[in-house]
Nucleic acid binder design. Structure first.
Lengths: 162, 162
DNA sequence: CGGCTTTCGGATACGATATATCCTTAATTC
DNA sequence: GAATTAAGGATATATCGTATCCGAAAGCCG
């Protein structure tokens, strides 16, 4: 069970977009260069963010992506689910139905006890991600990334933001 | 990101083994029949449990599997990790290193902030599973499964336990 | 208008992993 | 010695993640 690498990409891209000034857009090309990622494939991750209404886009030169909401109004789970999907990590195939000791046509009143526990863990995972806002990540980064790198990265981005 | 079906199988099999009387073994064949699973493939999941020292085995007719510890001393996470592996669901490829604004040879003092958050969620998932004991599952099942099915299943198993 | 750039979606290819089966070996029971 | 079992290696298939390419539609600018 492993998350796709696009999740990592999307989170880092959102962190960059969070630093964009009002009304500016950043292109796939710039985001791919900044993170050293294949442009065409990164584009798929950004399209997922777009379909989830987490980012807005505009076409043409000076086009690209920007956040659809304030960084404090976007949480990690939304970004993760946008690219990874909302399906639970555990899928119950109801193998208890195959028990030969069951009367034919017997119908369970509750979901399988095993599945309920696995789903509870899944929900704990999602809860943790839901509690972290994109603005929290930006705050942490601004503290931890050395000031000169932070600033020059920002300038690098602004030079390419349409 | 989806867990392999073997996780579901292993959990159900452990629940059955938890009901075995002291010193008895149950074969792959019986466990496969009871759950309607492919015997050869289920065998791989049981081998994983064996390698993790969660179950003990014996060969020959009347051979099979039994729990290595009391059901109250085995938690869900151990079973899940036995077949799914202990690797974290999020792998950080450190794409921040590709930032062209970085001085060459710069070394980060901390793991990536994005990864730390994802790992925290992963840990919340594991914590939930760690807190559930196999005996808890058995307790829930004994309450929810209709008494006649519960009993006849038990008899079915005992008839095949060596 | 016409050429350039951008997002978007579809088509395709490749590799890794999950699923599944088969076979051999060694141990145990009767 | 014959039957049964777990263990583990080899192999085949299907699904999914990764990656690239292309055309269409939309926006910018000379």
């Amino acid at each position: 069970m492993i998350l796709k690498s696009q999740v990592e990409w999307a989170l880092h891209c959102c962190a960059i977009l969070a630093g964009l000034p009002e009304g500016r857009y950043l292109s796939t090309k710039a985001l791919a260069e900044l993170h050293g990622l294949p442009k065409e494939y990164l584009s798929k991750a950004l399209q997922s963010l777009s379909q989830a209404s987490l980012v807005e886009t505009t076409l043409g030169p000076s086009g690209g992506y920007r956040l659809a909401r304030a960084p404090s109004e976007i949480n990690f789970l939304e970004i993760v689910e946008a690219v990874e999907g909302k399906a639970r990590s555990f899928t119950c195939t109801n193998i208890r139905e195959n028990n030969p000791c069951r009367p034919a046509g017997y119908c369970d009143s509750k979901p399988c006890a095993v599945a309920r526990i696995m789903w509870e863990a899944d929900e704990a995972w999602r809860d943790t991600l839901r509690r972290v806002r994109l603005s929290d990540l930006v705050g942490t980064l601004s503290e931890e990334v050395p000031a000169d790198i932070w600033r020059s990265t920002f300038e690098w981005v602004l030079k390419r933001a349409g």
